[in-house]
Design a protein around this nucleic acid. Structure first.
Lengths: 249, 249
DNA sequence: ATCAATTGTGCTGTTTTTTGCAATATATTA
DNA sequence: TAATATATTGCAAAAAACAGCACAATTGAT
């Protein structure tokens, strides 16, 4: 087998599977590992792939110098936020949860819209300040360093005294069977309170989180009135969530 | 499984859920915790995520508070903040007001210092988050768009229920005769409540504001225990404030 | 066609990297 | 404070990379 031929095969394999093991290739091409190593070395020098310890990785797979370190999956989250904004009406009283998706929602609130908006997220609150027609009320409490939101008994109690039209919430994990779950127990307590404080709960959730779960449960999936993902509501991935009294958007 | 693959998986998990446990990842990837720890360490060194005790958190959630170079009279305010920091002790419970001078104080809190810190200023709260040993409690309320702080009856009431060792406050205007005054009535109500909630009140005030006044009065100058300016305490400009039971710093 | 030079390939021994484990130190939590 | 969880360190085994070498295949010039 010629070198060219071999390298072409290697490249195809890499593109196909995003990654290869040198030993696998050597095996299937029936050459020594050294040969494959040399081939891969050349291909790496030609920037056709990236050589790593033990194998090679497709260039498309490797994250190129952190394109947007700010928000993961920003496009999807913006799509979700846009759908959520369509629910807002003049005079609405809403709640906006923490998290990057909810932050996008706050960002996309139209400047002319007159609303009252509760939140317990510092970044969301800062964003709301720039909306000239939004009255922002911050629910205080002990600030969680990681989530940058209020937590604790006081926060939960304060939430028990309000009732908003729409509560826009995020979640760490969601599953049709196990409902909304979180990594952090404190956060769960707060989210429970938020759902309680909302006439209608709207879940903002990128599809990547579907069918994932964790230790602590926030609520069953039925507790959610509307679920917004970046997907088309007819998408098959959303099938488990159909016929459960949930409005998919 | 290649190391790169593993690291990519870890990164995706972190960005998706904001936070992960090393043990969870080790479990799902079927490698030892040590390996995951080493991976996370590398990713942290590459600034792809932030490693914390027991896990890792997404960078999107660690808002890197950039020192604001646009602050007016930053040098003076930093000088004041440095003096204020010297009052802080391990285990102190303090309150930090809004405003750029107080924000400087928050910024200069030593990272090792274990404290509890109340505030009603969004920027101050965000700054406090980056202090690993400071417990931050935010006093909620209606957010003032201009001052970026909580205001209103609820805020005032909440303040009436706490008592801190030191209250570090700013003021719009100060005069030996007319005391602390403000432009905004709502702000005055809050500041009154803060002073009431403090065993000792510390005024942070650049010398430029000395001998100025405005419409609404916060308190007499006697209500202040310590007054910090960027000037030497012996400076003549401070003469009007001497012999009034005020400690000049 | 012959011979020397070049290139490609596999092999060997050595070095480096990766990984898991164990012992100890440190941090966190109750 | 004790008890538990997590970090750190050093170490050893395995895997992989590397360097050097031998040898075959190919090339190119005579």
């Amino acid at each position: 087998m010629l070198k060219e031929e071999r390298q072409k095969t290697i490249l195809t394999e890499v593109e196909l599977h995003n990654r290869i093991l040198l030993t696998d290739i050597a095996d299937s091409l029936e050459v020594s590992v050294d040969t494959v190593r040399r081939d891969v070395k050349e291909l790496d020098a030609d920037k056709k792939l990236r050589k790593v310890h033990g194998g090679a990785i497709s260039l498309g797979y490797t994250s190129q110098t952190t394109p947007n370190p700010n928000t993961y999956a920003l496009r999807e989250k913006t799509t979700i936020a846009e759908k959520a904004v369509s629910l807002l009406k003049e005079g609405s009283v809403i709640f906006i949860d923490g998290g990057t998706t909810c932050l996008e929602l706050a960002r996309l609130i139209p400047p002319h819209l007159k609303m009252s908006c509760f939140t317990l997220s510092l970044p969301v609150a800062l964003e709301l300040i720039s909306k000239p027609n939004v009255e922002s009320i911050f629910i205080g409490g002990r600030i969680s360093r990681e989530a940058q939101i209020s937590t604790g008994a006081r926060t939960v109690h304060d939430l028990s005294e309000i009732k908003v039209d729409y509560g826009f919430i995020g979640t760490g994990y969601v599953d049709a069977l196990h409902g909304l779950t979180e990594f952090d127990w404190d956060i769960v307590q707060v989210k429970k309170a938020v759902i309680n404080a909302s006439k209608k709960s709207v879940l903002l959730c990128i599809s990547e989180k579907l069918n994932s779960q964790h230790r602590y449960k926030t609520c069953d999936i039925n507790a959610i009135n509307t679920m917004i993902t970046e997907l088309d509501p007819a998408n098959n991935l959303l099938n488990p969530f159909r016929n459960r009294d949930i409005h998919l958007l």
